[in-house]
Structure formats: C-alpha cells, structure tokens
Design a protein around this nucleic acid. Structure first.
Lengths: 178, 178
DNA sequence: GTTCCTGCAAACTCTTTGCACTGAG
DNA sequence: CTCAGTGCAAAGAGTTTGCAGGAAC
C-alpha cells in the first residue's frame, strides 16, 4: 500500500499518521455500513475516522478521547457499541494483548496492511509483525488437531528488544505492565 | 464446565487426573518454597495441591472452589496472592486466554509436561499443544526484530475442530465466549 | 413513523490494595 | 517475638446491559 503526499510520513514512530486516503477509507467504510443496512451516525463516523487517521492500535478509551474531539459529549458505551458493529461489518478489527484493554484498528481488508502483533510484557509496547509469520503454525495446527488458528486475534507476548537488553544488562526494575 | 458435586475427592472426567506423584510434586514445591525463604501456609499448600491434582487449567475462581474444600473459609484474595508467590518461585505458571480470567497450572519444571495453549473463541475450550510449536516463529522474531517470544504466556486463539465444523455446517449460534 | 442508536446509570467480571490481625518461623 | 501471610472491605480496570429518549431512514 504505497503512501504519497507532500511531507507525509507513513507509520512514523510515535503513532503513524495515514495519508490522504483517509477520506477514501472513511467513505468506503460508510458505504459498506450503509450497504449492510447499518445506520450511519456521527458517532460511528467519528470512530471510523479516528481509526483511519492513525496506524496505532487504540484502546476503547483512546478512541473515545479522539472521537470526542470530533463529536463532543460522546460516551464510552457508544464507543464499545460502535466498534462492535463496525467489527461485525468487517471494517475494524480488535486485538487482545494478554494484559490491558483490547485495541482496535482498521481491518486489513480496508488498509491492505495485514499484520500480526507482539506485545512486550515489560513495557507494554504493541508492535506489528508480518502477517504470514504464523502460516506454518496454522497449517500444522489444522492438520494435527483441527484447530483453525486466527493469528491476528491475540498478540504474541514476550520481551521487545530494548526490554530484553535492559534485563540482560541487569536492569531489575522498570515499567509496570505484566 | 461448572462445578461438580460438593464433597467429592479426586478429579475425574474432563480434567485429567495426575497420578500418584501428586504428593511428591506438592512436597517438592513445599521444599522449594521453604528454600526460598517463603512461608509454608495451609493456603499455599492447598493451592499447590489443587493444581497438582489436576492437569486442567484452572481460573482463580476454580482454584478457590477446590482449595476451599481443603481449607474451608479461604478467601479469593488469598488465592491471587498465593498464585503470585508460587509463580515467583517458579512452581506455577499462568496463561492469558484473550477472553476471561487467567488460568493456572503447575510449572513445566515440576511436571515435565511443557506445552502451549490454544483457546477456542466460540466454546472457550483451552487445549494443550506441543511446546515446540512456536520454536521457528520465536527464532524468526528474535532474528528479525529482536523480540523474545514467551510462547506459553498467551493462548493461541481460533476455532477448535468441533466449533469449526459446526460453523461450516451453518450452525449460527452457540456458546457465549468471544 | 418505525427502528436502530445513543446517553446514562448501573451492574458485572476479574483483579488489586489498604488495613488490622494471626500464625509460621 | 516478629514479620510475612491472611481475611475482609473496598476500590480499581475494562466491559456489558437495561431503559428512556432521539435521530436515521
């Protein structure tokens, strides 16, 4: 998925901003919503836009904070219900990181950027890894026990490079997450 | 898979029963606890015994229910604190299944039965899979992004064979879990 | 004009924390 | 005798639910 535009930085460190195609993504989402007979409301539109404008993985709370700037007075509950219906329609996906709240992002079907997730037990960082990482594992599970792996639904947990290094360096205490 | 009858003794049915070596496992655990300067209390002993007597994966609530039969009046909080200290000493391990409470079992170091976990999104079943399943993935993650995978800490999510079949058969609704 | 969505309040699940007490060492 | 572990109450995070009113179609 090529990213264009003047001075646009695709998926930059602190929380990538997506490019010009935001509107297109939102529009496509809206269209799909309508096609499925779901109602298009300011709240849903806002949630969709929030997720289209970032490539970060946002918790419900974070979605609320940003959506509230678009539609002031929005309620926590509404975010939960919006992400649920947008999820059923296939517009967004959520990931469960062993600890802490679920996080949401646009579905790969829209962005074309399929990926899996890792989460660091020490610092809590959630990172993307290639979508095909678990293909072999999925095939083996299917063949041996008939389990159909959905590899993007839960994050892989462990230690990110810097936390692994820090620990190796004898750095005992650090961040909170488990 | 809710509760069983009250005064029953050993585990049967769905959850594997471990053999005669239970006492040995518990004894070894106790010894290790003492060696680490931790106190050996009835509550900790009970939690250890509960986990030694099953090969199931038990939530804190389930541990409490069974431990309470050994040490009546035991408190929820005590279970959480017991599994924490037993965990720090390396006697037990916990797994996070994307949904629902964490589950506990004896550490592989004690049982020799190292394994990973799958959890069905539809029926909630947690199953064991070979410990080496993610070895390649772990190696690739380490080599590419420096991530140190801890493959046993979170369950792999997806659909178990029967739920996958049921869904393929057009069976729309079923269990509660997500 | 229906029907679906939203806001609000409340409940719910799972887990952690503060405090006084007691039992292990 | 001392301090770590326990019970209890309360609070905390994250999420869901029931209901009344309002907006989308």
């Amino acid at each position: 998925m090529p990213d264009q535009g003047p001075g646009s930085a695709q998926r930059t460190a602190a929380g990538g901003r997506r490019g010009e195609e935001d509107n297109a993504l939102v529009a496509a989402g809206i269209a799909r919503l309508r096609a499925r007979g779901e109602r298009v409301t300011p709240a849903r539109r806002a949630v969709l836009r929030v997720l289209a404008e970032t490539s970060e993985h946002l918790s419900a709370e974070e979605v609320l904070a940003r959506a509230d700037e678009i539609v002031p007075g929005m309620h926590r509950t509404t975010v939960y219900r919006a992400v649920e219906s947008l999820g059923e329609v296939g517009l967004i996906t959520h990931v469960h990181p062993a600890h802490g709240p679920a996080v949401y992002h646009l579905a790969a079907a829209l962005t074309g950027g399929a990926h899996l997730h890792t989460r660091c037990r020490r610092c809590g960082e959630i990172a993307d890894v290639p979508a095909d990482l678990l293909d072999d594992v999925a095939a083996r599970l299917a063949a041996t026990v008939g389990f159909r792996l959905q590899p993007d639904h839960a994050a892989l947990t462990g230690l990110c490079r810097s936390c692994a290094d820090a620990r190796a360096a004898g750095d005992g205490g650090a961040a909170a997450p488990a």
